[in-house]
Simulated scan of single mutants.
Amino acid sequence: MARVTVEDCILQVPNRFELVLLAAQRGRAISAGASLTVERDNDKNPVVALREIADCTVDLDSLRLGVVSGLQKRVEVDEPEEDDMAQRLTVAEEWIGTAAEGSNKDRVEAEDADYDDSEGADAV
């Protein structure tokens, strides 16, 4: 088996720095237990990763996404779907309506009590 060189991989990934990042990402995936797409031939994981890149047996776009997601510090959170938002809005409106009714009821009772007190003062 001929040794894999950077020149073999440059045809697939023209930027040498990107090639190093992609090969390192693939090497970590192999170390984590990912299945190989080429024969190992007693090669170490970085060499196997470079051979896979040179032979176009791995998806480079998925490797790029893996590199980017591995370097991100902020994790994106999925937003709730519109159905969930509509349900939450309905619950919130019901809660606000109930709270407003309760405060109006207290206010009306207080006004009635004030009215009763004022009638009593006039009667004396």
Rank of each mutant, 00 (worst) to 15 (best):
V47H: 02
L11D: 07
T37D: 09
T57F: 08
E101W: 11
A110H: 05
A86Q: 14
A123N: 09
A49I: 05
V108I: 12
E18H: 11
L63S: 07
A23E: 01
V58N: 02
V77R: 05
F17V: 06
E79W: 05
L19K: 06
V6T: 08
D84F: 15
G120W: 13
V124Q: 10
V68Q: 03
D8Q: 07
L50R: 01
T5S: 07
S35H: 07
E76D: 08
G66R: 00
D117P: 03
R28L: 08
D112A: 12
D78G: 02
S103H: 13
S62R: 09
L71F: 04
V68C: 00
G66L: 00
K44E: 09
A32M: 07
L19E: 11
P46K: 01
E79V: 10
T37Q: 11
R51V: 11
V6A: 06
L89G: 12
D84L: 15
G97T: 08
S69W: 00
P80T: 09
V4Q: 03
M1C: 14
D43R: 13
M85P: 01
N15M: 01
R88W: 13
N45F: 05
V48H: 02
P80M: 08
A32H: 09
E7R: 01
F17D: 09
P14L: 06
P46R: 01
D112Y: 06
L60K: 02
R40Q: 06
V68A: 02
Q87N: 07
Q87L: 08
V67H: 00
D117A: 15
R28G: 02
L71D: 01
S35I: 04
V38A: 02
L11Y: 09
Q87I: 06
V48C: 04
K73F: 02
E93L: 13
A92D: 13
K73L: 03
E79G: 10
I96H: 13
L60M: 03
R51I: 07
R26G: 05
R74L: 10
K73E: 00
V48W: 00
S31D: 14
L36A: 11
L63E: 02
E111M: 05
E7L: 03
G120N: 15
A29E: 11
T57D: 08
S69Y: 01
P14F: 08
V75Y: 13
V75W: 14
D117G: 13
D112S: 09
C56Q: 12
L60N: 02
E82Y: 09
A113K: 11
R51D: 04
V4A: 13
A54N: 04
L50S: 05
E7F: 01
